[in-house]
């Protein structure tokens, strides 16, 4: 099936100042405070300083850090989902 490129591409982003409330709303703030939140790719422990973003895979939220390779991996995961549609 042909993917139609209509409309704008939406990029969901969280601003530095809102990271705390964002994590609280998605239920990951407690894990971060307890040091249990890790990057899905490099396994480093995530804190407010190195939190890079989040995506959903098989119904489960996965976080990643700010390292370039982890960011690219996360984007790849997401585009694979789109590709598989």
């Amino acid at each position: 099936m042909k993917v139609q490129l209509e409309g704008k591409v939406k990029i969901r982003a969280v601003h530095d100042a809102d990271v705390n409330s964002f994590l609280q709303k998605i239920g990951l703030l407690e894990d971060m405070k307890n040091g249990r939140l890790t990057c899905s790719f490099c396994n480093c422990v995530l804190s407010i300083d190195n939190f890079g973003g989040v995506f959903k895979e098989n119904g489960k939220l996965k976080s990643f850090c700010q390292k370039t390779e982890c960011y690219l991996e996360a984007l790849k995961e997401k585009s694979n989902v789109i590709r598989g549609k």
């Binding site: 982003a13 969280v14 530095d16 890079g52 989040v54 995506f55 959903k56 995961e77």
Partner: peptide, 16 residues
């Protein structure tokens, strides 16, 4: 608002 992240969505961090 509630934050709902869809199966094919990614939220990235931007800022300072």
């Amino acid at each position: 608002e509630e934050v709902i992240i869809g199966e094919d969505e990614i939220v990235i961090r931007l800022g300072s």
